[in-house]
């Protein structure tokens, strides 16, 4: 085990959606390299609390990289320096000792700031509401093995279904596009025989909802894939575009 280190963190503080925000610096001393990034923020918050200050607000829940709650832009990169990683899965050993680390919320007009590093991502729920499902009510399903799915197709569906809905793709995109997120759901369901019946309507409604929610269009930079903690590939965006156009041409 290596020695404890000190850092300076430069954190975006903002009281609420209306307030103006600003960066505030905090010194963090004596942090174990095995502490996670969020545990480091916990330590800062404990100190702030003892001094009567307001702790830094940030979202988190599972702290094992699967719930999608956490997420900040760290030194300019959504979810920080390691590829394929959520913010909660960063460890202080991933930062050079003594470093100044800049921490900001996701920035996108479809993600208004609630407080400090916490943003409102309900716009993503509304994209799912617009068709990110298969309409099957409980009780009406046939026996599970009546629907064979070739393993390679099932694996591709799974790869897209791994999306955790964290919003990093949006934060990384200069257009604040939710195409990777939307495409992942469209791809997941379009790969499966169960998903065919609603495929056209799903693509149409989801894409249009994303636009109405204020997410931008995709301009093929690939920044989303680079920061995606689940490494969802941009081929899902091609699927989304194809299904969307084909829906209009009534080809599916």
């Amino acid at each position: 085990m290596s020695e404890n280190q000190s850092y300076t963190i430069r954190v975006w503080r903002q009281d609420d959606a209306q307030a103006a925000g600003k960066f505030v610096d905090y010194d963090v001393k004596d942090v174990s390299p095995d502490a996670s990034f969020l545990e480091m923020l916990d330590l800062v918050n404990e100190d702030l609390t003892r001094d009567g200050g307001e702790p830094i607000a940030f979202d988190y829940d599972c702290r094992e990289g699967i719930c999608g709650s956490c997420g900040c832009v760290i030194d300019g990169v959504a979810h920080g320096p390691l590829p394929g990683t959520t913010t909660c899965q960063l460890y202080m050993r991933n930062f050079p000792p003594g470093a100044t680390i800049t921490v900001e919320p996701w920035r996108a007009s479809a993600f208004p700031v609630i407080k400090d590093l916490v943003v409102d991502r309900s716009s993503m729920d509304r994209i799912i509401m617009a068709g990110g499902y298969i309409s099957v009510s409980a009780g009406s399903a046939p026996d599970a093995n009546n629907i064979p799915v070739p393993k390679p197709e099932a694996d591709l569906a799974f790869e897209a279904a791994e999306c955790i809905g964290c919003g990093a793709c949006v934060a990384a995109c200069k257009n604040a596009s939710a195409s990777l997120f939307t495409g992942a759901k469209i791809e997941h369901l379009a790969r499966l025989p169960q998903g065919q019946a609603e495929r056209a309507r799903r693509a149409q409604r989801m894409v249009e909802t994303a636009e109405a929610e204020g997410f931008g269009a995709c301009s093929n930079e690939g920044e989303c894939e680079a920061v995606c903690p689940k490494e969802i590939p941009t081929r899902v965006i091609q699927r989304m575009n194809r299904d969307y156009i084909r829906a209009y041409l009534k080809m599916i």
Binding site: Y133, I134, G139
Partner: peptide, 12 residues
């Protein structure tokens, strides 16, 4: 049955 019909990608 219900989960497969929803599109849950179980191992195959």
């Amino acid at each position: 049955d219900q989960c497969v019909a929803q599109g849950v990608p179980f191992a195959r």
